[in-house]
C-alpha cells in the first residue's frame, strides 16, 4: 500500500517511469472495464488511453482515503459515459425473443462459452443497452441515477435493461446450443 502511495507521489511529480509503472499495474483491470463499455477493442483502447491521461492530470486530487483502483475505475466509467453522450442513440430497435436457461448453472455456462465470448456479447449490445446494463449490473447504480446520468427517464432505463438482458439471454442460449452441437459432432 505504501509502495502504491510512493508510486502515486512520484507520478504526481511527473516521473514518467513511475507513470508507466502505474499504468502497467492497473491497465489490465481497467481495460476490461473499457471493453465492457465499448463496442470493440479499438474504442476500448481509446477509452483506456483517455482515462489514464485524465488520471495523471488529476492525480494530485486523489486524497488517499479510498481505494485507488475505485478512483481509477470511476474515471474510466466517466470517460466511457462522456463518449457515449457525444453519440447518443437510445432508441435501439431489437427483435427480441425470450428463451429459458433453466437447465444449466452459471459456472457451466462460463466453462462452456468462455469469458471472452460473454464479453463479446456485452459489446454487441446496442450502445444504450450496453451502457445501462453496465451501470446497473457492474456499477450497482439505481435506475434513477442511471436516468440522470444518461439524460433519460427511469422507465426507459428499466425497459432498456430488460431488453439488454433478453438479448444476452438469447445470445447465451444460442452459444450453448452451438457448443452442444459441436460437442455432439465431436463424439
Amino acid at each position: 500500500m505504501e509502495e502504491l502511495q510512493l508510486l502515486i507521489h512520484r507520478c504526481i511529480k511527473g516521473d514518467r517511469h513511475s507513470q508507466n509503472e502505474l499504468y502497467k499495474l492497473f491497465s489490465q483491470k481497467m481495460f476490461i472495464i473499457c471493453l465492457r463499455y465499448s463496442p470493440n477493442r479499438q474504442e476500448a483502447e481509446d477509452n483506456l488511453q483517455e482515462g489514464f491521461l485524465k488520471a495523471f492530470e488529476f492525480l494530485h486530487q486523489y486524497k488517499f482515503t479510498g481505494s485507488f483502483e475505485g478512483w481509477l475505475r470511476k474515471i474510466m466509467v466517466n470517460c466511457a459515459l462522456q463518449k457515449y453522450r457525444t453519440k447518443k442513440d437510445l432508441h435501439a430497435i431489437v427483435d427480441i425473443e425470450t428463451t429459458s436457461l433453466h437447465e444449466i448453472g452459471n459456472e457451466d455456462i462460463i466453462s462452456q462459452i468462455g469469458t471472452k465470448e460473454l464479453l463479446r456479447m456485452v459489446q454487441k449490445l446496442p450502445n444504450a443497452y450496453r451502457m445501462i446494463f453496465n451501470l446497473y449490473v457492474f456499477e450497482g447504480m439505481k435506475h434513477r441515477e442511471i436516468a440522470e446520468e444518461l439524460g433519460i427517464s427511469e422507465g426507459t432505463s428499466k425497459s432498456n435493461l430488460y431488453d439488454a438482458r433478453i438479448i444476452l439471454q438469447r445470445s447465451v442460449t444460442k452459444s450453448l446450443q452451438v457448443a452442444k452441437q459441436s460437442k455432439d459432432s465431436s463424439l
Binding site: S27, Q28, K29, F31, I32, L35, R36, A44, E45, L48, T98, T99, S100, L101, H102, N106, I109, I110, T115, K116, L118, L119, M121, V122, F133, Y136, V137, F138, Y162, R165, I166, L168, Q169, V172
Partner: peptide, 25 residues
C-alpha cells in the same frame, strides 16, 4: 417476465469482473 433474468446479471458479472485483458502496447 423471464425468471432467469437476474441470473443473467450474475452470470456476466461473475465471469467478466474477474477477467483481465492486456491492451496493445
Amino acid at each position: 417476465m423471464n425468471e432467469n433474468l437476474p441470473d443473467i446479471d450474475k452470470l456476466f458479472k461473475s465471469a467478466i469482473e474477474q477477467h483481465d485483458d492486456i491492451p496493445s502496447p
